[in-house]
C-alpha cells in the first residue's frame, strides 16, 4: 500500500519554510489534556512533536498521544527514545505507530533516567539513536526488520534526528550530524538556540561539508518567560547554552515585561534564522506554553 508522504515532508520538499511545535503528553491518562493542547496548535504548524517520557518522567506514551493528534487531524512527529525500549520493542512500536497513521518519527537517545522521578529504574540503551535512525530507514527503504525479515507492510516514516550544536566537543558536532544523515535522517531538529554565534558557526561548517544539501534543518527556539528561566536553562538543563547577554537582557526589564521581552528575543531569533542559508524551518518548543505558539507564528509572519 502506498501512502502519501507526511505534510512535514511535503512542506520541506516544496521548499516552504516549515514550522513545528511541541506537545508534551500529560502525567496521567486524561486525553482531554492532549486535545486541549492540540486545539491550540491545529492549523498553526506543519507538525507537532510529541515527546517520549521527556526528562525521564512517566507520561502518556508518545504513540498514544500521537494517535490522538492524528484523530484530530494534526500531524504528529512521534519522538522515540532508546532509553526505555530494546530493539525488539522499538521495531514493534514503529510498526504500531505507522498502523495508527503516524508518519514522522524523531529518533533520540533520551534523557538519562537519573534526571526523572524514578531514578531507581534500569535503563536499556540496547542500541543508540544512530542505530535507531538506520533501523527505521531500513524498515522503510528495504521493507525489512533488523533480522532481515520481510515486513508485510513497511512503515514509510519521514525520519528525524536531533542535533545539539551547543554540546561538546564542538568539532565533533558536525561529524555527528554527518553520521546521522548517513544513518537515515531526513530532517534535523536542533536544541534551542540562544547562542546565535555558535549556531552560525555550526551551520557554516555543516554547509562546508555539504550537509545542509542533504538534510532539512529545523532550528529550535524556546521563548523565555523570565530571567530565572534563562538562568535555570543555562545552569541546570543538560546541553543548553544561554549566553550572558541574553540573561542580562531578560534581567534588564521589569518582571511584568519579561514575557514580552522573551517573545521579542524569540522573534528576533526566528527572523535571523530565516536569513541563514541551510535552515529549512523552525521548531518552536514552548514548554507547557502551547498557547503562545500561534502568537509567535503570527508575529513571525509564518502563518499556514
Amino acid at each position: 500500500m502506498k501512502t502519501s508522504p507526511s505534510n512535514l515532508q511535503k512542506t520541506l520538499e516544496n521548499g516552504k519554510f516549515a514550522v513545528t511545535a511541541e506537545c508534551g503528553p500529560p502525567r496521567g491518562a486524561n486525553v482531554k489534556v492532549v486535545r486541549q493542547k492540540a486545539e491550540l496548535l491545529k492549523g498553526v504548524v506543519d507538525a507537532v512533536n510529541v515527546t517520549d517520557n521527556q526528562t525521564a518522567i512517566v507520561r502518556m506514551s508518545s504513540i498514544a498521544a500521537s494517535a490522538h493528534l492524528v484523530q484530530m487531524g494534526l500531524e504528529p512527529v512521534m519522538q522515540m527514545v532508546v532509553r526505555d525500549r530494546n530493539r525488539i520493542a522499538l521495531q514493534s512500536d514503529i510498526l504500531g505507530a505507522w498502523s495508527l497513521g503516524i508518519k514522522n518519527i524523531l529518533c533520540l537517545s533520551g534523557d538519562h533516567q537519573t534526571f526523572g522521578s524514578q531514578p531507581d529504574a534500569m535503563n536499556v540503551f540496547d542500541i543508540d539513536s544512530m542505530n535507531l535512525l538506520r533501523m527505521v530507514k531500513n524498515m522503510r527503504d528495504n521493507g525489512k526488520d533488523m533480522s532481515g525479515f520481510e515486513l508485510n507492510e513497511a512503515p514509510q516514516m519521514f525520519i528525524g534526528a536531533a542535533a545539539n550544536p551547543f554540546a561538546d566537543p564542538f568539532e565533533y558536532r558536525v561529524i555527528r550530524l554527518a553520521k546521522k544523515i548517513e544513518a537515515g535522517a531526513d530532517f534535523i531538529q536542533t536544541q534551542c538556540i540562544y547562542n546565535m554565534k555558535r549556531f552560525k558557526e555550526w551551520i557554516r561548517l555543516s554547509r562546508e561539508e555539504g550537509l545542509t544539501e542533504k538534510v532539512y534543518i529545523l532550528a529550535g527556539v524556546t521563548p523565555l518567560k523570565s530571567a530565572g528561566m534563562a538562568k535555570f536553562m543555562n545552569n541546570r538543563v543538560a546541553g543548553m547554552d544561554v549566553p550572558e547577554d541574553v540573561i542580562k537582557r531578560m534581567e534588564g526589564v521589569p518582571k511584568e515585561k519579561a514575557v514580552a521581552e522573551g517573545l521579542k528575543i524569540c522573534l528576533e531569533t526566528i527572523a535571523e534564522l530565516r536569513e541563514i542559508k541551510g535552515i529549512s524551518g523552525v521548531h518552536i518548543m514552548a514548554i507547557e506554553w502551547e498557547e503562545k505558539v500561534a502568537e509567535i507564528v503570527k508575529a513571525a509572519g509564518l502563518q499556514k
Binding site: R83, D128, F166, Y172, G239
Partner: peptide
C-alpha cells in the same frame, strides 16, 4: 552513561557528563 557507540549525546559539556 548511555552506552552510546556513535559519539557523544547532546549532554556533553566541557568534558563533563550531564548525568553527574
Amino acid at each position: 552513561s548511555k552506552k552510546l557507540l556513535n559519539g557523544p549525546c547532546g549532554g556533553s559539556q566541557n568534558g563533563i557528563c550531564e548525568v553527574d
